[in-house]
Amino acid sequence: MNTTSRSTRPLTYDEKKAAEAAFRGSAFDPSWSEGALKIYEGLRLAMARRKQQGAAEFDVSRN
């Protein structure tokens, strides 16, 4: 997915709170919008993938 071709807009208040919660590992607030949920889930998924890749890079059992 090419994110550079998307138009950007400022995040709403609940989208900012969702991003913050995702980075902190906090739970999603069900009162937040669908857009906030997409941001929350996207960040959590990206962070999990990054963590998984980092673990694979430093796996000494593969040597």
Results as ranks from 00 to 15, higher is better:
Thr3Trp: 02
Phe58Val: 06
Leu43Ala: 03
Asp29His: 11
Ala55Gln: 08
Tyr13Cys: 14
Phe58Tyr: 06
Ser5Asn: 09
Val60Ser: 05
Ser26Thr: 07
Lys38His: 05
Trp32Met: 03
Gly25Ser: 04
Arg6Cys: 09
Arg9Met: 08
Pro10Glu: 15
Trp32Ile: 03
Arg50Phe: 00
Val60Trp: 01
Lys51Pro: 00
Ser31Thr: 15
Pro30Lys: 14
Asp59Ser: 00
Phe23Gly: 14
Arg6Phe: 15
Lys51Ile: 05
Asp59Asn: 00
Ala18Asp: 06
Ser26Ala: 13
Gln53Ile: 04
Arg62His: 04
Thr12Lys: 14
Lys38Glu: 13
Gly42Tyr: 00
Thr3Ala: 13
Ala18Val: 04
Gly42Val: 01
Gln53Ala: 13
Phe28Ser: 10
Gly25Ile: 09
Leu43Cys: 02
Leu11Asn: 13
Leu45Ser: 10
Leu11His: 14
Asn63Thr: 11
Phe28Gly: 12
Val60Asp: 02
Ser7Phe: 05
Asn2His: 14
Asn63Lys: 05
Tyr40Lys: 06
Glu15His: 07
Leu11Thr: 10
Ala36Gly: 06
Gly42Ser: 02
Ser7Tyr: 06
Arg50Gly: 05
Ser26Gly: 07
Asp59Leu: 00
Ser33Val: 06
Gly54Met: 03
Ala46Ile: 05
Phe28Arg: 10
Ala36Cys: 08
Ala18Thr: 03
Gly25Thr: 05
Arg44Cys: 06
Arg49Ala: 07
Gln53Asn: 08
Leu43Glu: 01
Glu20Lys: 15
Phe58Cys: 04
Ser5Ile: 08
Arg44Ser: 11
Ser5Cys: 08
Arg44Gln: 06
Tyr40Gln: 03
Ala36Gln: 04
Lys17Asp: 13
Gly35Leu: 01
Arg62Thr: 10
Asn2Ile: 09
Arg24Asp: 10
Ala21Gln: 02
Asp59Pro: 00
Tyr13Arg: 12
Phe23Ser: 15
Arg49Trp: 03
Ala19Leu: 12
Ala48His: 07
Pro10Phe: 15
Tyr13Trp: 15
Thr12Trp: 07
Ser31Tyr: 07
Asn63Val: 11
Trp32Glu: 09
Glu20Gln: 14
Ala19Asp: 03
Glu41Ile: 06
Phe58Trp: 08
Ala18His: 02
Thr4His: 06
Lys38Ala: 10
Pro10Thr: 15
Met47Asp: 02
Leu45Ile: 11
Met1Ala: 12
Arg9Lys: 13
Phe23Ile: 04
Phe28Trp: 11
Gly25Met: 03
Thr3Gly: 11
Arg44Met: 04
Asp59Val: 00
Thr4Gly: 04
Ser31Gln: 15
Asp29Gln: 08
Ser61Arg: 01
Ala27Leu: 14
Phe23Asp: 15
Ala46Trp: 08
Lys16His: 14
Ala36Thr: 02
Arg24Thr: 12
Ala36Trp: 04
Ser61Pro: 00
Ser61Phe: 01
Glu41His: 03
Ser61Glu: 02
Asp14Ala: 13
Asp59Gly: 00
Ala56His: 03
Ser33Leu: 05
Ala46Leu: 08
Ser26Asp: 14
Thr3Cys: 11
Met1Asp: 13
Ser33Trp: 01
Glu15Asn: 12
Ser31His: 14
Phe58Met: 09
Ala27Glu: 13
Trp32Arg: 11
Trp32Asn: 11
Ser31Pro: 09
Glu15Leu: 09
Thr8Asn: 05
Trp32Val: 03
Gly54Cys: 01
Ala55Glu: 13
Thr3Leu: 14
Ile39Phe: 01
Asp29Val: 10
Ala55Pro: 00
Ser33His: 04
Lys16Tyr: 15
Leu11Trp: 12
